[in-house]
Write a protein that binds this DNA or RNA. Structure first.
Lengths: 203, 203
DNA sequence: TGTACATCAGTGAACGCGCGTTCACTGATGTAC
DNA sequence: TGTACATCAGTGAACGCGCGTTCACTGATGTAC
């Protein structure tokens, strides 16, 4: 071997991470040139790591959803002794998350594109979504019932819908109003959240 | 004039309508060739009607959101004497709407793309969204209060989030479960809806 | 009513451009001696 | 330790393709006589 044994794997991971950011920032029309440049490489090297653009996409869907799932788990752990759900929802519907899509929730970033992907990517999406549902179900009370699962789904869809509309709104007033309405609808009219500890999705 | 006076306007409207369908079915990466072919024309004629692809896009955003708004108004009228909101939500979260995005809700079709549009399109989106919020606020009880507006926003975001996730799910079971969870979260655990009168958005 | 003309909505070939993909090459590094 | 060689991750020019856009042309139709 001419290079440290895991050097190629590290480069590959860097490309995936770069693509994960691009996907959430630019959308599914992100280009390979853009991804590779952001990873500090030139576009030609791409095919030493991936068979095609589509192959990368599939992997990025999975990686990004895993990141989001881990983020939620971290938040839930920080949320005790309150129900973990409150910490998740407050962080998710915070302005910092709204304003930083590139490091934010994967689901909100590409839900609308999944419909048009191949069966493999669609499968991965559904499986990861199911994992996320289970995680959230454990944070609502009472956990582990059919009702908890149904509630978890409702919380997830409400969070995602709220975030996407808040991001689409073009003036801060309307956008903040949407965030607040979503927050209160999910958590009830409790005290307003003090600025949460980890403002954004990653790092 | 060599043609009936409103012939050009009719053709133009046909292009917009074709683009409105394409936008919701294919997404924002719809092509001019595709739109014009669906309108029974060839691509070259496009620039006799629109200055650019972007100009068409802006007009289609507005037209499509207007169609959705009118659809909601029709449903609200059909929903009396029950609160009109029930009719809207039940129809919105019905399988027929989920399975026919091309003729369905404009907001769900392109919320995630609005962020990346120019200020004009973003403005139009926010204005139309505000109109939709007002319409829904009139259907919740008690209408015309600040609380009604906040509730209306929550209903809209929940509907959109639910629909988008249901469309992304790759198996019917999960997708139906999402629709049902969204429905119950918004309307409460009432009787399940009998198949609504107008299954889909348009016509 | 019938014919010649003028108009311009719509056609389709052609353009440049950015994209995904390929490929001959390079040059940094590990190995053999 | 020092030198020659082998490897292959990464480079960058080149490719075909589909896209948005342009433009010279056509042909259906309204108007003038």
């Amino acid at each position: 071997m001419r290079y440290a044994k895991n050097r190629k794997a590290q480069t590959r991971a860097r490309i995936v991470e770069s693509a994960s950011l691009s996907l959430r920032e630019t959308g599914i029309q992100m280009s390979i040139v853009e991804i590779m440049r952001a990873a500090g490489l030139t576009h030609g090297g791409f095919y030493a790591h991936f068979e095609s653009r589509e192959a990368l996409l599939g992997e990025v869907f999975e990686t990004a959803m895993d990141q989001t799932l881990r983020w939620w788990r971290r938040l839930a752990a920080e949320g005790v002794p309150r129900p973990g759900i409150a910490k998740i929802v407050e962080t998710y519907l915070h302005q910092d998350h709204r304003d930083n899509p590139a490091r934010g929730c994967a689901v909100a970033a590409f839900v609308s594109d999944i419909r048009r992907q191949g069966p493999k990517s669609r499968r991965v999406f559904s499986l990861k979504l199911d994992e996320m549902t289970k995680e959230v179900a454990q944070q609502v009370a009472p956990p582990s019932s059919d009702l908890a699962r149904q509630e978890a789904i409702a919380v997830i869809t409400a969070m995602i819908g709220t975030l996407m509309l808040a991001r689409a709104a073009d003036c801060a007033d309307l956008s903040d109003e949407i965030l607040k309405a979503g927050l209160q609808a999910i958590l009830g009219p409790g005290e307003l959240p003090k600025s949460p500890g980890s403002p954004c999705g990653e790092k």
